[in-house]
């Protein structure tokens, strides 16, 4: 039976037993961030790179003290970048900040209303980053052709959106996600759009290698409890995928045998 030691998620040559990746945004405070992330069981945790608050919040703990890089794989993102240049610049700063750690989440956004990726800019940035030795996990649309292009460029994981970032609308186009998974030779992770546990399970049942989420946990009424639910949903969905679901039928199929019926 598959378990976490035999069914690892392998990204850029590193094996992870958890297939749930989580963000660190939108939490009430650092305590809630820490509790939710610990409960989720996530091993890869995204962070944003922003200007330091000079001379402010001296008492507030540093995020990297709450999620220490020796315990978690820190995945710096380029959220908020609307062009390739600023995304590449952000990744280079992140690499310096994290002592040469070169795994990054690339997202180059198209507009503020949809937060859909700008694909030409994302392609440009992915090329520059892979040429510069970065291991790129790329946020993209649920387009199978683009997913293949990013794989061919050397991205270590392709992460199609399931619905707009922060929308919680769930897996809007399961057929595209399935096609992307079927064509892929690198891990495919749903990044964005998951709203609740069943959405995460559906992504995993489609064969995704993992799910990256932030808002679904952070904006739950009880984020720590939702983190627990998501952990179970990811595991349940993965096991259901590996188990292979029964075929769908248009009509009933009795579960009890007909033979030996006594009236």
């Amino acid at each position: 039976m598959p378990n976490s030691s035999t069914d690892a998620l392998s990204i850029a040559g590193v094996d992870y037993s958890s297939r749930l990746l989580v963000g660190t945004g939108k939490y009430k405070d650092m305590d809630e961030t820490k509790n939710a992330i610990e409960t989720s069981g996530a091993q890869i945790v995204t962070v944003a790179i922003r200007r330091s608050n000079i001379g402010q919040n001296k008492e507030e703990p540093n995020l990297l003290e709450v999620i220490p890089p020796d315990k978690y794989t820190i995945l710096p993102n380029t959220a908020g970048c609307y062009d390739a240049e600023s995304a590449v610049r952000t990744c280079r700063l992140a690499r310096e900040l994290l002592d040469g750690h070169d795994l990054v989440k690339l997202e180059v956004l198209g507009d503020e209303k949809t937060l859909f990726p700008d694909i030409p800019q994302t392609l440009d940035a992915a090329k520059q980053l892979t040429d510069d030795g970065f291991k790129v996990m790329v946020y993209t649309t649920d387009d199978p052709i683009m997913a293949k292009r990013f794989e061919e460029m050397g991205c270590v994981a392709v992460m199609p959106l399931a619905a707009p970032i922060g929308s919680g609308l769930g897996i809007r186009n399961p057929y595209n996600i399935r096609t992307i998974v079927e064509n892929a030779n690198v891990p495919i992770l749903v990044d964005a759009g998951v709203g609740t546990a069943s959405d995460a399970a559906i992504a995993m049942e489609l064969g995704c290698d993992g799910v990256l989420m932030n808002t679904a946990i952070a904006e739950a009424k009880n984020p720590v409890l939702m983190a627990s639910a998501m952990k179970k949903a990811i595991e349940a969905g993965r096991e259901a995928y590996l188990a292979g679901r029964m075929p769908r039928r248009a009509y009933a199929s009795a579960s009890s045998p007909i033979d030996g019926h006594f009236f």
Binding site: G23, Y27, T46, V47, R51, N77, M213
Partner: peptide, 25 residues
């Protein structure tokens, strides 16, 4: 690079950015 902090002089008009990691998705 961090190792160059002691040797790097700042000049008038320089545009300096100092960044860190914060919560994000």
């Amino acid at each position: 690079p961090r190792s160059e902090y002691p040797n790097t002089r700042i000049h008038a008009g320089d545009n300096i950015e100092i960044v860190n990691a914060i919560g994000g998705g």
